[in-house]
Design a binder for these strands. Structure first.
Lengths: 212, 212, 212, 212
DNA sequence: AAGTAAACGAGACGGTACGTCCTGTCTTCTT
DNA sequence: AAGAAGACAGGACGTACCGTCTCGTTTACTT
């Protein structure tokens, strides 16, 4: 997986193109520190919410100097966002059973289950909050959400190709309705992420997608 | 409309009940200051987003002491929420043309037009951010969003009663899909609130609602 | 005694002249905090030298927010310099026995005794160091040293008026030789501030001052 | 002249003695780098004073890795001290005209002229500052100042032997008064190193030294 | 009219977190 | 092995806000 930090590390490689013969000088990035920071981010957040999620606490928990954080990430939120992205990639699969309904249900049920974990919900909320005032976080969040939308869209496209969904179904709209529903519940908090809610959402989306 | 500040102002009234014979002493609340604060809140926010929305800046912009803010509101977010609620009450219509499609389109086109005003979008984002950490703001936001959901639901119910929508259509789901779509775009910012987007959203919702 | 902080507090009074009718608004400076900071400065420094003399430690020792320090002093060094100035005023007297030799000896013996106290020597060194890179401290140090030079000069002037010293004696030169000797020993540390050293210095200065 | 870096460089030579048959392995010390560092030290210092005199800046200015500095010198101040010592050795003369007054005047006028060069004054201040917290620098400074005191003392001794100065004149005191005067002006900065100041100082010292 | 009490603009206060800077050490690749 | 480059842990810096706490003034009601 291509991470943000790999991207952040790319400028030196970029300079490589400019100055031939100097592919890299100096100590390399410490991968252990990177991992420690990402893990500490989730742990600190889980420990007691947004309040204790300070850069100092993060650095201390990771056993790292603050500068090492600021060297590779534009902000606290960007760290968090990357930590989330990395975990999401390993946790949410891309089901392919041959039936859109089943796939969509699997996808959303798994997502909802994930969101019932308080630490996950808190993390996502925190990233969204940061993104509203910090461009660095906003960018990482944009990448994260885009990746998720693409994942669901691909799932739907398979169903459409198989003729399970109407040819003229507006897949992008469906995807935005689905993730909109999720984030809205996550942020407004008026209703929980029950299994039943997932099922109803699937039924609604499929109904819309099948109609000619 | 019962505002937060009226609620916040109640303790003095509470003391009144406790100590008979002393209905009120001292200077009364300065209504001009209240207005100045609410207006300044929107203005400061519009000026340059969530970042500069500090209590000091708000107080300075309103020409008011900080204590005057903290005397009447529990938090910055509460001020903002009240400012928004007060304005929203005057701006939102409830169209009733006899056709759900027309009504829904009117409702959403108006909403989208509103969200294209930068100051409005910024304000809503700020309230949402504030609500994630401040319970007072969260409550106001909950009231606000509930009111909006009810408004759209009523609109849909009229259509359902008239037989325009399927009897078994999941109206609550439709409402959450709609507002989810809106808030998701507002917060992630990956796509604008074009008129076309509103139309597509209406079409999707109606398709889903009409299917048996 | 007019202190630096009083001076620093003067801008508001200065504005008073500009805007009539507004002699002062808002909470006044907390004199207790000022005292606590000055005392903490000496205490922290005495505790373990220049190393622990950080602004955070100073603030913590005084039970004060960092901002309260930065509000009234341009830098750490300026605090220290003021603390020293304030103490010096109370500790070093202006002897007047009728004999320059006796007075000068009293003055220098007292000064040397003071400099044998490690905390005092450390403080003076620290201020001198700060003054080399921080203009704020430099100014306060200049005031401090000027005051001390004036004190010694007045002592010598009395002797000159009484005819004890040659009329053409270069008093400013004598003063700079004396304080030069002191600071040189303090900073280079090649020899201690013994009583005998004080006596020799007095003899040398008087010899020079009496010669026609 | 035995320099600090020669001393610092001795451990490798020490290892040479220990392990016979392996007189030296690997690359030898780069003399060009040593020179570059010493020159950069003076240049960086002259550029804008003590504030910008950081190890990173020094390394960058010398086109050298930081480790190369730390490999050969115990501290920043030691570099500076060596740079200064090296230069001073070439610049200071020991006048011997046959007259103490003339010699002393020549010595001090030359010294004052040197101190009017901003880069020289800044460097000396920096070393003095560094010496207050770094023992290595303190030692080098002690050597430097001792050497200067001895130079002046020798000058005075010649005069005393020739009978130009009183036999009981306290030469050490005179020397400390002279250098005290100089460092005091250098560090407090209340008055410049004019030619007239040098002359007055000479007159004062000679007056004191001639009196019986 | 005098007294009393609350609200007000102003701004200082104790705290907390921020993002930057520097130090002295460690790591990588080159000479 | 020494060098240039530069990442690392650690820790101080000076700034920005927060929510609270005085100040002296203004306004309104009660005697």
């Amino acid at each position: 997986m291509r991470t943000v930090s790999e991207h952040a590390a790319s400028p030196p490689s970029g300079r490589q193109a400019a100055r031939k013969g100097r592919p890299h000088t100096g100590r390399r990035r410490n991968e252990a520190a990177r991992q420690a920071i990402l893990e500490a981010a989730l742990e600190v957040l889980a420990r007691s919410g947004t309040a204790t999620m300070t850069v100092d606490a993060l650095a201390a928990a990771a056993g790292v100097g603050k500068q090492t954080i600021y060297r590779w990430w534009p902000s606290k939120g960007a760290v968090l966002a990357e930590a989330l992205t990395e975990r999401a990639a390993t946790e949410v699969a891309d089901p392919d059973s041959g039936s859109v309904i089943a796939d969509l249900e699997a996808f959303l049920v798994a997502t909802f289950r994930n969101l019932r974990v308080p630490a996950v919900a808190t993390s996502l909320r925190a990233v969204m909050v940061e993104a509203q005032s910090d461009p660095g976080t906003a960018e990482v969040l944009a990448q994260f959400t885009t990746k998720r939308r693409i994942a669901m869209r691909r799932l739907l496209e398979r169903g459409q190709r198989r003729g399970e969904l109407a040819r003229q179904a507006d897949l992008d709209l469906l995807v935005e309705q689905a993730f909109g529903f999720i984030w809205y519940r996550l942020l407004v908090g008026h209703a929980p992420f029950t299994r039943d809610a997932a099922t109803r959402l699937v039924r609604g989306l499929v109904t819309q997608a099948k109609a000619p």
